[in-house]
């Protein structure tokens, strides 16, 4: 893979270069990669947050698999660096950097920067079903107790404190918190809280 040296040089020089690794390990480099992405119409959207690898691998498009392979390579210590710019779920507005990890320091890997620019007229892949639901409907999925738990999660309480405040078992709280995260289509506790504030589902003090 002759381009590997170029990629490593770019990393060394901190030029912010763009490279894409396809599932066969081929590298598309710099401007070509950018142009390829700009013309791509079937880029997947993935939820922000944990386990990007699984998120990408749930999609079957070659580009998603390529990103997944690159992430796996970093986690397995076979690659040195990756940086991914996701498209926001509100993809027509703007894109942003969500992940920049991890210089493993072994000098053996590839740079992968998957840059997705939102806006314009590009056709987007559909969002996962749970995040396509309008926000009000999402909140209605919560039981009264889960809404109560969400309220105290939003106040910053941890599960032990929630259990004490609501006078319920810790394990019960855990179940409620997990249900809240899942029903709101969030990928983390804090993402659920952020959504709750943004949509006015919790009281602002």
């Amino acid at each position: 893979m002759a381009d590997r040296e170029l990629v490593q040089d770019a990393l060394h020089l901190q030029r912010g270069a763009i490279a894409i690794v396809d599932p066969d390990g081929n590298v598309t480099w710099a401007d070509d990669a950018w142009a390829a992405l700009e013309s791509q119409t079937d880029l997947p959207r993935v939820p922000i947050g944990k386990n990007l690898l699984e998120a990408y691998r749930r999609h079957h498009e070659p580009i998603a698999q390529a990103v997944g392979n690159a992430i796996a390579a970093v986690f397995e210590g076979k690659a040195t660096y990756f940086e991914i710019e996701h498209r926001a779920s509100r993809g027509s507005e703007r894109s942003y950097l969500t992940s920049a990890a991890a210089l493993r320091g072994d000098g053996a890997g590839l740079v992968l920067i998957h840059r997705v620019v939102s806006g314009g007229t590009r056709t987007n892949s559909p969002l996962p079903a749970d995040t396509r639901t309008p926000s009000g409907d999402v909140f209605k999925r919560l039981t009264p107790r889960e809404r109560e738990v969400l309220e105290v999660m939003a106040a910053g309480l941890d599960n032990r404190a929630i259990a004490a405040k609501l006078r319920i078992q810790y394990t019960t709280v855990r179940g409620h918190v997990r249900a809240v995260i899942e029903k709101l289509g969030a990928s983390s506790r804090l993402e659920a809280v952020a959504r709750a504030y943004r949509n006015g589902w919790v009281t602002k003090e």
């Binding site: 509100r90 507005e93 910053g156 804090l190 993402e191 809280v193 952020a194």
Partner: peptide
Amino acid sequence: PPDRYLRERLLRLPWLEDESVM
């Protein structure tokens, strides 16, 4: 301090501010 961190930082994290249900 932790009693301010949620409001002053966590809810303002750029990747959480931009992400949306719809």
